[in-house]
């Protein structure tokens, strides 16, 4: 017992924790504080900035409630994309591809285009509503889960073949949508285009009571499995050696990822770049293998970037519309600057 305490008091205790030393710890905490401050700042900004009604009046509260729903949507989307992308990249052992490669976005585009193509302008409104939201989500999940289980448990049993098939299906659906879009009238096309860019305003308040619990439940499940994710990130043979049931874990993670991405896509439309960006920024700034540390940072990056873009677009520039444009601009620039300065991925 005496020996143990003496060892604990040693100046440089040897340990294998995900945070290597004091400097690493300081960097991580500082980054989390910075992101936290940014997130809170943008949240307050979106809630309070430029509210035309008088403060405290009924009108002010109506507007504030609407803005609160937008913020909740941003939170759900950031949570889904950040955690799903990190988990997906861990599962497929590749930090360049994103779950979008499985054709979620293309399927969403195809569904939306098909409805406008068949039903005209009314098609867009036909896809609004809670049952429709779940229907779209279910179709995307069905596609993804069918791909995973078929290609991972069959005789192929190969992640790369699965991804390739996903890309081909995505491409096929994309050209199909393109073809149908050619046949639309300009006004129909205009209405459709607004739906195809990821847009916070696409989400409706009535989706949120379903979306928030599902997102929390699924991400909570990923959080519980974080230790296994750390091992899966070492690749198939190392994970098997360490006693992880690799195939089962892989299919489970990919199924959870497909729930998250399907839901986020059904909620606001495709956002290809957001997940990639949050994940890569989290890897760079957290600089650790531990998913328990990567997940929160990824989420905060996602929230700060999305709410910041939304705030600038909607309230400062007074231009509604595609947040993705700003996400890609700001995020892409940050990413490039960082890579150039650090010199490695």
């Amino acid at each position: 017992m005496m020996f143990k305490t003496a060892e604990q008091q040693a100046p440089q205790q040897r340990h294998s924790k995900p945070i290597t030393d004091r400097k690493h710890m300081r960097n991580y905490v500082l980054m989390m504080i910075l992101l936290g401050v940014l997130s809170v700042g943008f949240t307050i900004g979106i809630m309070g900035y430029n509210n035309p009604a008088e403060f405290g009046s009924d009108g002010w509260w109506v507007i504030a409630d609407m803005r609160r729903d937008s913020l909740l949507t941003i939170g759900v989307v950031a949570l889904c994309h950040a955690m799903a992308t990190i988990a997906f990249q861990t599962a497929v052992n590749n930090r360049i591809i994103t779950p979008g490669i499985m054709g979620f976005g293309s399927l969403y585009t195809a569904i939306q285009t098909m409805f406008v193509y068949v039903f005209g302008m009314a098609g867009v409104t036909m896809l609004v509503g809670v049952p429709q939201f779940f229907l779209q989500m279910a179709m995307m999940m069905l596609l993804a889960t069918a791909l995973y289980t078929w290609l991972l448990s069959g005789k192929f049993s190969n992640v790369h073949i699965m991804l390739l098939v996903g890309v081909v299906i995505g491409g096929t659906l994309g050209s199909l949508s393109n073809f149908m879009q050619r046949m639309l009238t300009p006004s129909e096309f205009d209405v459709l285009t607004a739906r195809l860019f990821g847009n916070i305003s696409n989400a409706r308040a009535e989706y949120l009571p379903y979306a928030i619990p599902i997102a929390l439940l699924v991400t909570g499940f990923l959080w519980v499995r974080a230790h296994k994710l750390n091992v899966i990130a070492l690749g198939k043979s190392t994970a098997l050696n360490l006693g992880v049931n690799y195939k089962r874990e892989l299919i489970l993670i990919l199924a959870l990822v497909s729930v998250l991405i399907s839901m986020a896509t059904a909620l606001v439309g495709p956002m290809m770049f957001l997940g990639f960006l949050t994940a890569i920024l989290a890897y760079q700034f957290a600089d650790t293998y531990s998913h328990r540390l990567l997940f929160p940072m990824g989420f905060l990056f996602g929230y700060a970037i999305l709410s910041g873009s939304y705030f600038i677009l909607r309230h400062v520039w007074d231009a509604g519309g595609a947040v993705t444009v700003i996400v890609e601009l700001i995020g892409g620039t940050v990413f490039l600057i960082f890579i150039l300065r650090k010199g490695r991925l």
Binding site: R14, S16, P18, N93, N94, N230, A233, L242, G243
Partner: peptide
């Protein structure tokens, strides 16, 4: 053996205890 994660020697060896 190629890992996408960035690990220190000690963290890698620590995974042996998993």
């Amino acid at each position: 053996n190629h890992f996408v994660t960035r690990l220190t020697v000690r963290q890698l060896v620590g995974f042996g205890r998993f």
